[in-house]
Design a protein around this nucleic acid. Structure first.
Lengths: 223, 223
DNA sequence: CAAACCCTGTCACCAACCTGTCACCGGCTG
DNA sequence: CAGCCGGTGACAGGTTGGTGACAGGGTTTG
């Protein structure tokens, strides 16, 4: 795990870093918002631990910038004191969790791990194929950022192709994949039609459904 | 929240269910261990409230079975009398909390809520989603400062959506979340109606419930 | 205790959109 | 070049979801 710690108090930062290092968490330190920004420009982090009070501004400002850029990196906010209002505004800025100083380092680590796990769990569901992003849980397909709206059948079909990318899939196999066995009266032409519709919706993508005459179809990634 | 109550005394069970229902907790009732087992086979619960003395055995037996299967659902044990030995053996069986009859229903509810909160790992009890603030404990929802008045069912529904934001939730899943299984005669249209009502109350928010035809609904945050 | 109010869930009807057939076309293959 | 396989536009149901109106039941208030 790669972590960015934004904290200006040296003792605090050192104590945290030693502890995290011991747990095998690679930890970069930024003492100001400025430093944090330059690090974030060149490096992706799995988790950010952000102190609220920094010499050159508020942690929440950085947080808002990130979310503005739709960077969803999990952020844990550290703060000295915390009124109910602070709490609300911090969470509103897009923080995922917060911890009030002084805190127990074990708790900090536990929460960092929790955020990391959540993040990884979400990501596992995202498949990237060429310039396509496929998320089975959210049932979302994106083509270069833009969302592609697929119907149920189209989605099932694409899912089949993606899970077997590179393999030739027979029409029968595909048919069984998207129609239930009750649909005995549906013609094979329906499948061809769905392939056509999918192709149209995915046109402009590096992902292409190739026809294998007499055999079936195959999903290929071109460049 | 979805709760399983295992209790054979009818009066007691009814009193508890009415109370919990009023707080928006979808509550299933099992009068025997047998019934409880079949319900647990088909349904996940957030909390289980378990009477110790049941016609077909001891509540602790069920509890041990669960823990054996490494099911960590929080369990609150209800019992008529309680020696120190009982207490120890109950907790050893894997109970998370217990309550001695007669008890105050408010206390029961508070403890159930506490177990639920702990389970959800929700130390930050205020959830911020887009321009919405959601407080499960206080049962308050705010849209850009202004309070949104939601009914019991509307609140349960929103809670489900928020705890699974981004994921597609099937109508069945949502239905089970807001109705108890005794409500077999309620039509699926009721759920659609609640979605419509929620949408109306949340109109103008960045949080939107999207329809996934044939699949269910999904909560999305737009900008 | 009645009146007013609100929450619930049903019904009916409408709108949107998904679906699969048909028909016809075009290109491969032998 | 004939035959076949696959591609695709148009269209007609059919399914699914949305929503206004309403009735029943419960709760609050005067």
């Amino acid at each position: 795990m790669r972590l960015l710690l934004v904290e200006d108090t040296f003792d605090m930062a050192e104590a945290i870093m030693i502890r995290l290092d011991r747990s095998g968490i690679a930890c970069d330190l930024a003492k100001t918002l400025e430093e944090a920004r330059s690090l974030l420009d060149v490096q992706r982090y799995d988790v950010i631990v952000l102190d609220l009070n920094l010499p050159d501004g508020l942690g929440t400002d950085l947080l808002k910038e990130l979310r503005q850029k739709s960077d969803r990196t999990p952020v844990l906010v550290l703060t000295a004191e915390f009124s109910v209002d602070d709490r609300v505004s911090t969470l509103n800025s897009g923080a995922d969790d917060y911890l009030v100083k002084p805190f127990d380092y074990r708790e900090l680590e536990a929460r960092i791990q929790a955020l990391y796990r959540r993040e990884q769990g979400d990501k596992a569901e995202e498949l990237a194929i060429g310039d396509l992003t496929f998320n089975a849980t959210a049932r979302v397909v994106r083509l270069k950022e833009a969302q592609v709206n697929l119907t149920r059948r189209e989605f099932s079909l694409l899912e089949l192709f993606i899970r077997n990318r590179g393999k030739v899939l027979s029409k029968e196999r595909l048919f069984e994949g998207i129609f239930s066995f009750q649909d005995t009266d549906v013609s094979m032409n329906a499948l061809e039609l769905y392939v056509a519709r999918l192709r149209k919706k995915l046109s402009g993508s590096s992902v292409v459904i190739e026809t294998q005459r007499g055999l079936g179809y195959k999903l290929e990634v071109h460049d």
